[in-house]
Design a protein around this nucleic acid. Sequence first.
DNA 1: CTGCCTTAGATTTTT
DNA 2: TCTAAGGCAG
Length: 681
Amino acid sequence: MLNPQQQAVVEHPGNRPLLVIAGAGTGKTTVMVHRVAELVARGADPHRLLLLTFTRRAAEELRCRVAAKLKLDVPLPWCGTFHSVAAKLLRRFATRLGRSPGFSILDESDSRDLLLHGLKEIISKPAQEDLPGKALLISIHSYMANTQQSLEDVLDQLAPRFAGVAESLRAVFERYRTLKIEANAYDYDDLLLGWLDLLRRPELKSDAFFDCIMVDEYQDTNIIQSNILLELCKTHRNITVVGDDAQAIYAFRGASVENILNFERQFPEVIRLKLEENYRSTQEILDAANALWGEAARGFQKELTAAKGAGVRPRLDVCRDEWDQAEKIVAAISEAWVRDHVPLREQAVLFRASNHSFRLEMKLNECRIPFKKYGGQRLADMAHAKDLLAFLRVHENPKDLPAWQRILAMLPGVGPASAGKLATLAANALLPHEALAAASLPKKAAACRGPFLDLLRTQFGDSNNTLELKDELDAILAYYEPLLPELYDFPEIRREGVREIATAALKFKSRRELLDELMTGDDSAVRNPARESDEFLTLSTIHSAKGCEWRRVHVMQLTEGGLPNGAAAKEDRKIEEERRLLYVAMTRAKEWLTLYQPLQREVKDQQGSHHERALPSRFLTPAVLAVLGGGGRDGRFSNPDARQAARAKLAAAAADPDELIYDYDEAPRRPPPPARPFRRY
DNA sequence: CTGCCTTAGATTTTT
DNA sequence: TCTAAGGCAG
């Protein structure tokens, strides 16, 4: 049942822009889903509805819920992240923009490589000027794109001491731009800029596609995205945006909370509605969130009140060190599962950075507790996945220089330099397989030469148009798998990963669809393939947890350097964003919230590692601590019956029933297999 | 000049 | 564990 405020949002007529300020847990997604249903009931065409979100995960969630509500067999075609919708539209109109529809999408590491490639071309080796380092160079470029500011303005804000070399930087960025065009590739920022460019073409009616636009998490949009929205509803004004300034956590990408204020300026006739009643959490949890928000440097007055009433007080659990933290979390989760019958699905562990969960993942593996991890490494970032995708990319877009470079550098004896030359050769050739067959390869590569050229002939030869995705993947694997021992330290793990991707890839109808889904869509089904069961625990970065909720939530690493993150500690603005991050984490909990503060941190050194004292997070102020319950017993099972029951239940779910379940006193100390293959770009 | 091996140093968040 | 960077060999 919807409350009157929610009902007002659902029934708001489509002819005026609507701004919904929705606090955490106020039923935002539910309201959006109902509103879509209402619009469709009033005759709107689902194919002309555009639903935009910020993260892949939120898009997936919204898509599923709308499909369930509308009982659609096929989900809404235009529900996705800004980037995925942009990619889809750009493919359709690529020729108008002077691109071919098979363009490649460059991820962060591809664009980094290409930018540095441009840098090397422009700047002679003994650099005469004092130039920014690579990391800074990349952040300058990205910040420029995301905030739409001039190079001078960005330098002024990020690196004033490099104002003098602006002209050289401009030349490098320009070269990068032409390199992307030559490679027929878009980086992530280009997808948004390209969409905006498309909308501003006079020959195209910018609002011809969509009758109604809805945007979730509006506080996280950046200036390009808000400009896109402005163009999309130039005439019809049928736009709904939903946001909450307390949950703005993407300023680092150029997102600005000011967009919410600007929205009212851009659409003067806007109706502003508020959702204030929280249906998610107990009052105790909201008291803690309110206490935290009360200490924010600035922000709108915000007091969440619970419709649900009272419950259990949230706790702070002080732990000896990070191993102790992992054990306590595992204990609390097992106990909840067994004693309180809280399914794993209803529990989550949240953290600031994906490496925080390392020890916890080991413990969970030891105890055979199934989990899915969200955030951090994406599938398409893993080296072997990128290798595999590179073969598909060059077939889709033979001009894809970074992909060629990657493929060629796999050959023994071929390093970055000769890979670059060969890649240029292949990318510029009409028939890449013949160009490379004619090129000379180093002696060391002799053994690979035959199979390599065979693969290329399969992909680029006469019969390439009838090549099925499955057969192509088989051919790639046949060539690629034997290379793994040469390329990586743990080839077996890589091989497993590659096979999993190849299997998951069969779901897709075409190569292009597969590539788009992995680059801009939701890859969690491919990423966590082994867990078919419904019963799994969620581990997630706080960023990826936004929009989700669980009955029990555990927030890790409440230390200085953990949360707030160490890199953020210097700037007040960044600290405020860290505070909002914790706010988001806490407000995910429905009935049970525990924060964990390890007292020590493990530091790597020459001998191995030693422990250092870790300070408590600055967010654990007296005001916040006052509403948190403290310490108490640690999470061990308090009676033998519970322990027995835990074993029984865990055993039923475990893959191998003979293996031991949870009891860290008796747990075997052998290291479990890594949760996932290691990273390498 | 290129490739490969060794060693030192690092380690956010997302598309 | 991974990456960048520096030294050495081809």
